[in-house]
Nucleic acid binder design. Structure first.
Length: 644
DNA sequence: AGCACGCCGACT
DNA sequence: GTCGGCGTGCTC
C-alpha cells in the first residue's frame, strides 16, 4: 500500500491543508484525484509521498481525474503562493486548477490546424540585437526590459520565443487583457504553429480542453493570456514574457490576491528559465527591485524605426482664453481635430471617465443623485437617460424633477466620454466618431472594430484608458487629453505613477512614424513635473523623484504593506471592530506602523460600512503573521495593489 | 473553518 | 409533537 499527502481544493480545516490517503497504486506527485473527506467528496492534488504507514486510519484515494500529473514547478508554485500570501492551499489550488475537472467527457471541439503563415526572420536593429545578446548572457531569472513605446519589444519577444521553440520548450506570454492586445496575438499567430489564447470569455469546457492540451502537449506551444495563463500546466516551459508589466491588472483582486509578476518570477525559478517583463513605464517598486540585481534591467531607449517626435501643446484648463469655442475642448484641440479631418487622418481623444456626467445635482436644494448601496454619486448616461453607479452597476432612470424639492433644476456636472462624443459630434457633424469604454456594446468593442480603425474609416476616436494602451494605428496623427490631472486626487501612494503611465502611454499613441503628429494636453497643473516628465518620456527623473518620496513616506519598495478591511451592517460596528484590531496589532507587534483605522475608499458596499487598516513593516514575514491572525470576515491583502 | 448532530426550550 | 437556537466535536 502506498501513502500520499493530498491537498483538497476545498477548505477542510484552517490549520491543515493536506491529508493522508492510501492507494494500492504507485502515483506521481501532482496527480489530480478525487477524495472523500468527512461526508464530502472533493478534488485533491497529491503533494507528497508518505514513507511510513500513518498511526491513524486513512481512507483510500478515489479515482485519478487526469492521466498526466501536474508539472512539478506548478506544484512548487502553489506551495509558495500559499505561504507568500498567507492563503490556504485549497484557495490557491482552486485558482490554479480549471473548474469542472471532475466532469466527465467533454465535447471535443475540432482544434484549429496549425498553419505557419510567416517563417521569415524578423530583422532586428542594433539596439534590439544588443538587448537580445544581453538577455542571452543572463542566467535564468527575471529580466526587466525597459523599452520606450515603439522600441520593438514585441519583435524581441518573438525572437526569444523562437529560440525557446527551437529548444522544444513552450512559452507563456502574459498580457493585461486579451481584447486590448489584438496586434500582439496576431503577431505571434503569424510566427508560430500553435498559439493558445486564454481569456475570461472561454466556457468551462473550452478552458478544460485547452488545459488538457497544455498538460499533454508533445510539441512546444505558445500560451497567451491574462495572469491566470501562468497556471497552464506546461511541463517543458522555456520562457515567460509579461507584456506591459506595469499594468495594475497583474494584481489579482480576489483571494488569493497574488501579483502575476511575483508568480512569474517564481515559476521561472522553478523551471530554471528566464522571465522577461517588458514595459515602457515600469512600476517604481518593480524598477527598484530589478535595480537590486546585477544586469537585470535591459534598456531600449530609442524607437526601433526612425520617428518624428510629436509636437506637444500644454493647455492650461484655468485659462479661459484658450477655451473660446467650447467650454472643455480647447481651441488648440479643436484646431488639431479640424486639421486631422482636412488631412484625412485620425485624432484620439482620451478621457478617463465614462458616461455623460459624473454627478447629477439639484440647483435649488443641493440634492445629488447617489447610489443607494455605495453612497457615491451616480453617473448620468444621456443616451439611455439613466443614472448608473460605476462601482456596483446599480441602474435607475434619471429624474425629470428633483426628488427632494420637486424643482425641475437638475444639472449634470462634470465630463464623461459620452458627453465628449456628443459635443464633438455637434462641433463636427460630418465626422465619423467611435467611442470605446466599458459601456461599449459587444459589437463595438475595440477588438471588433480594430480593422475599421486601422483602415482609417473613423475620424475621431474617443475613449477611456483602454485606448491609451498598446493601440497602434498608422493614420493616427493627433492625441487630445481632456484633463491630464484627473485621477491625481485619489488617496493612494501610487496615483502619481498611474497618471504618469497613462499620460506617457496616451501620448505614445502618436510619434510612432516618421511623420508629423500632435499631442494636446489639457491640465489644471501645467507646471507639474509629473506632466512634464510624462510628456517628455523622462522616466528616470520621474523614478528618482518618486523613489525619494516612497522612502520618506515609508511606502514600497522600502516598506511592505498589508491592508485589512472589514465590512459591517452598521458604521459603529465597523469602527469598533477596526479600532479593536488596530489596538491589538499595535500592542502585539510594536515594530510595525499601523495607519488607521480609516473608512475604506469605497466606504459603502452592498449596504455595508467598510473600514480599513493599513500596516507598514520593514519585515514582510511579520505582516504574514498579522495576516494569519486577522479575525474571521476580514479581507486580507498582502502587498495590496492600492490602498483604495 | 465549516458543518452535522444533538440537546433543550418555545411554539402550533 | 416539532421547529430551531447554538454548543460541541470532527475532518486523513
Amino acid at each position: 500500500m502506498y501513502y500520499y499527502l493530498v491537498a483538497p481544493t476545498i477548505l477542510v480545516r484552517k490549520d491543515q491543508d493536506s491529508f493522508t490517503y492510501h492507494s494500492p497504486h504507485q502515483l506521481p506527485i501532482g496527480t489530480v484525484v478525487t477524495i472523500s473527506i468527512g461526508k464530502k467528496t472533493a478534488i485533491g492534488v497529491i503533494m507528497a509521498f508518505v514513507r511510513q504507514k500513518p498511526t491513524f486510519a486513512t481512507k483510500m484515494l478515489g479515482e485519478t481525474l487526469v492521466s498526466t500529473s501536474l508539472p512539478k514547478p506548478l506544484i512548487e508554485l502553489a506551495l509558495w503562493m500559499s505561504k507568500y500570501y498567507a492563503s490556504p492551499l485549497s484557495t490557491v489550488l482552486q485558482a490554479i486548477l480549471p473548474a469542472g475537472l471532475n466532469k466527465k467527457r467533454r465535447q471535443l471541439k475540432h482544434l484549429p490546424e496549425g498553419v505557419v503563415r510567416n517563417r521569415t526572420n524578423i530583422v532586428l536593429n542594433d539596439d534590439q540585437q544588443a538587448a537580445l545578446k544581453k538577455i542571452a548572457a543572463q542566467k535564468p531569472g527575471t529580466i526587466l526590459l525597459h523599452g520606450v513605446t515603439g522600441s520593438g519589444k514585441t519583435q524581441l519577444y518573438i525572437e526569444l520565443a523562437k529560440q525557446s521553440m527551437a529548444d522544444n520548450k513552450s512559452i507563456i506570454v502574459l498580457v493585461p487583457e486579451i481584447s486590448l492586445t489584438p496586434q500582439l496575438v496576431a503577431e505571434f499567430q503569424h510566427h508560430f504553429p500553435r498559439v493558445i489564447v486564454t481569456h475570461s470569455k472561454l466556457t468551462e469546457a473550452e478552458r478544460h480542453i485547452l488545459w488538457l492540451e497544455c498538460l499533454t502537449a508533445a510539441q512546444p506551444i505558445i500560451v497567451i493570456g491574462p495572469r491566470s495563463a501562468l497556471f497552464m500546466p506546461l511541463h517543458d516551459l522555456g520562457l515567460i514574457v509579461v507584456d506591459e508589466a506595469h499594468e495594475a491588472t497583474y494584481k489579482q483582486d480576489q483571494t488569493p490576491r497574488y501579483s502575476a509578476l511575483r508568480l512569474a518570477t517564481m515559476l521561472a525559478r522553478y523551471h530554471n528559465i528566464r522571465a522577461v517583463f517588458g514595459t515602457a513605464t515600469p512600476a517604481i517598486a518593480d524598477y527598484f527591485l530589478a535595480s537590486q540585481h546585477q544586469n537585470a534591467i535591459i534598456e531600449l531607449p530609442r524607437p526601433a524605426r526612425k520617428v518624428q517626435s510629436p509636437q506637444v501643446h500644454i493647455v492650461d484648463l484655468k485659462n479661459k482664453q484658450q477655451f473660446r469655442e467650447h467650454r472643455f475642448i480647447s481651441d488648440m484641440l479643436l484646431t488639431t481635430i479640424r486639421d486631422g479631418i482636412a488631412n484625412n487622418t485620425q485624432t484620439l481623444i482620451f478621457h478617463n471617465r465614462r458616461g455623460s456626467a459624473p454627478t447629477a445635482l439639484c440647483q435649488d436644494c443641493g440634492w445629488s443623485a447617489d447610489c443607494p448601496g455605495c453612497f457615491v454619486p451616480l453617473t448620468f448616461h444621456a443616451d439611455n437617460h439613466q443614472l448608473l453607479c460605476h462601482i456596483c452597476g446599480h441602474k435607475q432612470s434619471a429624474y425629470p424633477v428633483c426628488p427632494a424639492c420637486n424643482a425641475p433644476d437638475i444639472v449634470f456636472k462634470g465630463i464623461g466620454t459620452k458627453l465628449i462624443q456628443q459635443e464633438v459630434q455637434k462641433l463636427f457633424p460630418k465626422a465619423t466618431i467611435a467611442r470605446f469604454d466599458t459601456d461599449s456594446t459587444k459589437e463595438e468593442t475595440l477588438y471588433n472594430r480594430y480593422q475599421e480603425l486601422y483602415d482609417g474609416g473613423i475620424d475621431i476616436i474617443i475613449g477611456t484608458q483602454l485606448l491609451a494602451k498598446g493601440l497602434d494605428l498608422p493614420n493616427l496623427t493627433a492625441v487630445g487629453i481632456i484633463q491630464a490631472d484627473s485621477g491625481l486626487q485619489l488617496p493612494d501612494y501610487q496615483t502619481e505613477e498611474r497618471v504618469f503611465q497613462l499620460l506617457y502611454q496616451a501620448a505614445g499613441r502618436v510619434g510612432r512614424l516618421d511623420t508629423p503628429s500632435t499631442v494636446v494636453v489639457q491640465t489644471y497643473t501645467p507646471q507639474s513635473p509629473l506632466i512634464q516628465q510624462a510628456l517628455t518620456k523622462d522616466y528616470n527623473s520621474f523614478y528618482t523623484q518618486q523613489l525619494k518620496l516612497r522612502q520618506t513616506a515609508k511606502f514600497p519598495p522600502y516598506f511592505y504593506l498589508l491592508k485589512l478591511t472589514c465590512s459591517y451592517k452598521t458604521e459603529s460596528g465597523a469602527i469598533n471592530a477596526a479600532k479593536k484590531l488596530a489596538t491589538h496589532i499595535t500592542q502585539q507587534w510594536p515594530s510595525v506602523i499601523v495607519a488607521g483605522p480609516v473608512p475604506a475608499f469605497r466606504e459603502r458596499m452592498g449596504g455595508n460600512y467598510r473600514w480599513q487598516i493599513v500596516i507598514k513593516a520593514k519585515n514582510r514575514t511579520i505582516l504574514l503573521d498579522i495576516a494569519k491572525e486577522a479575525p474571521a470576515g476580514w479581507q486580507v491583502d498582502v502587498d495590496p495593489g492600492n490602498l483604495l
